[in-house]
Design a protein around this nucleic acid. Structure first.
Lengths: 201, 201
DNA sequence: TATCCCCCTATGCAATTGGATAGGGGGAGG
DNA sequence: CCTCCCCCTATCCAATTGCATAGGGGGATA
């Protein structure tokens, strides 16, 4: 029988999902309430076939928890989340998650998703697939635009960036405007977040 | 002889530091130009006593690379960086790094730092030590501040956030000001980046 | 009760940001 | 040569942000 490890700090949510996966999916499910205890459970209970990790949970610290678990578990690791921002999904998948499961997912879909991932595939809800495409197409910023974007994402003001790059402040604004258009960003903060969502950190 | 793994994508920098550590430190140094190749090198060359990772390098993706390496290497892992923002240093240490080495470090200090970390200690340049204390304790934002921070990190304007939360724009500014102080952010963009670096996404 | 914290609001001002318009100079390629 | 693209600069203006000051109301707690 396929064995799953489910880690979520909400007792109720965790046990509900675990029980559901046992009854409806016929899986063997072990659970944990934090990243650390999940790792400990792995040591104790032996290897599993799939790990489901709550995105917001003690020890997760954004996606570093995913990386840790992936390195330790040696099996697909999926991210489970209550709030479902599409950009988190993107980052999770890029960071090597086997899938991204919003808790709003229909129960039957949950079982299907788990089976899907157990067979080695990557799972992602349809809603997100469409929202990913647009950013799929190649975005190419000019070197200068990357310089500016880097400065922005370090929280610098235009003035500071201008000084660092030894250009005028207006020019920084110019680059910011064009790169924001390319990225589809509403403002500098949005641009910075999008930059981090891609590899441009 | 103590064995080090040095990963940096800048050929020149990497080899210079490696050679220096060999000659001045008497270490055995193996090197790699990306996180993946560093992990591959570990498999091939066997375990090492200390890993030095460039912070901005293919595959690092902020601190997830650190987590991956830590889980795999089973030895202290330090972060190496050219640009040295103190907040990165803090996060690196909190994420379990054995040390934080700015490339501007005096060569002799570099050897000392490496020896320090080999003995299991944590290394960090003096400049940063002072700046760490204040944020040392857990940062706790009030619920409202988190709401605002969330909006900020979605690139929304104060006006939009105010509408979403059904409060006045001034109040949004107020929360932004206080949460920025708590996080040590210079402005909204900086706050957004810090927010994403922690779990508060 | 007194005190503290959180939340909210208001006014006003300085600084920054965002955006439009209008250029010049240089390099690459048809 | 002409065109396109990138980079740079300038001026001007509207909008937003950042910051300070000065409150009121409610809930928790000592």
């Amino acid at each position: 029988m396929r064995k799953l490890l489910l880690a979520d700090d909400h007792e109720l949510v965790r046990e509900t999902i675990a029980e559901f996966l046992r009854l409806q999916g016929g899986f063997c499910v072990v659970s944990a309430n934090s990243l650390d205890s999940a790792l400990a459970t792995l040591d104790k209970e032996g290897p599993v076939d799939l790990v489901l990790l709550d995105y917001a949970m003690p020890g997760m610290d954004a996606l570093t928890g995913l990386a840790t678990m992936k390195a330790r578990a040696g099996c697909p690791v999926a991210i489970l989340t209550g709030t479902a921002p599409p950009d988190v999904a993107r980052r999770a998948l890029r960071a090597g998650a086997a899938g991204f499961l919003p808790k709003t997912l229909a129960p039957q879909s949950l079982v299907a998703a788990v089976r899907h991932m157990l067979s080695g595939e990557t799972y992602m809800p349809l809603d997100f697939l469409t929202k990913i495409e647009p950013d799929d197409g190649r975005i190419n910023l000019t070197p200068r635009e990357k310089d500016v974007l880097l400065g922005i994402s370090e929280g610098k003001s235009n003035k500071e960036i201008a000084r660092d790059l030894d250009i005028q402040e207006v020019t920084v604004k110019l680059h910011l405007k064009t790169l924001s258009r390319k990225l589809g960003a509403k403002n500098r903060t949005h641009a910075a977040m999008l930059a981090r969502d891609m590899g441009l950190t």
